[in-house]
Design a protein around this nucleic acid. Sequence first.
DNA 1: GCTTTATTGACAATGATTTTCATTTGCGCC
DNA 2: GGCGCAAATGAAAATCATTGTCAATAAAGC
Lengths: 140, 140
Amino acid sequence: MAERAETGLRSTRQRHAIERALGAARGFRTAQELHDELRRDGVSVGLTTVYRTLQTLAEGGAVDVLRNGEGEVIYRRCTTGEHHHHLVCRACGHSVEVASDDVERWAGETATHHGFTSVTHTAELYGLCHSCSPEGRPGK
Amino acid sequence: MAERAETGLRSTRQRHAIERALGAARGFRTAQELHDELRRDGVSVGLTTVYRTLQTLAEGGAVDVLRNGEGEVIYRRCTTGEHHHHLVCRACGHSVEVASDDVERWAGETATHHGFTSVTHTAELYGLCHSCSPEGRPGK
DNA sequence: GCTTTATTGACAATGATTTTCATTTGCGCC
DNA sequence: GGCGCAAATGAAAATCATTGTCAATAAAGC
């Protein structure tokens, strides 16, 4: 349940294709988008396999996992392993990736203070990007 | 599409019940949890109606909408004032409310830096409370 | 080349949310 | 107080992303 890194894990055509597609993508992709792109590329891979492979990669820390505004799971190849959060525009969906050492520290300290372990956290910012902001008018 | 406040909108038993339940709830609720609580309260309201009413309230800005870690939509009565975050135990569901000035400041600064306005944020911590922690064994 | 066993993938199943549509019911009006 | 219509309700069916099932396939090691 926690030992898998080198145990099994065969090198298959499908896994390579999925990793390549993920690497080629600049941003986040849903499993289905990735599946479509592979099909478009002429690579035949089952949707189930895409889902499963992405999960496996995510467990191994090879990809970042989060959710888009609609609750769908989205994946991205892990950029140097450091994790960050997102600032999303409520109006147009535009998103910016932001670092957040402060939040990481806060999460860790708060959890420890309350005796929690194995802590993960979510922190998303929602607002109106400058293109969507009604200038000079404070929202709501 | 933006004019509805007084147009239609009848005052029904169901809508009142849902609003009351939301007000009584301390934190976020999924539509289904709310539905269960209403049933438990002896109030008969259709699940469909709960979903629809929550959507309507959300559109009107009366409730905050976000998603829990599993991608489910969760609602909370809009408390534009003070807010806090939650540290939730993954295993038993126990939750602790935590203040977080650091996060508030980070959210504000980050948003401003990127030109966003009307920013709100969510920050939830998920972990294992000390009762559920496998002592001495790091998770996963 | 052969065996073992992880992997694959078509299909069924799940579960939250939405849609459909016939019935009910606020609410303004007479 | 009674009518009528559009909004609201809700049970059941439809969606849709995701997960489970399981027989067939194909790496890796011998």
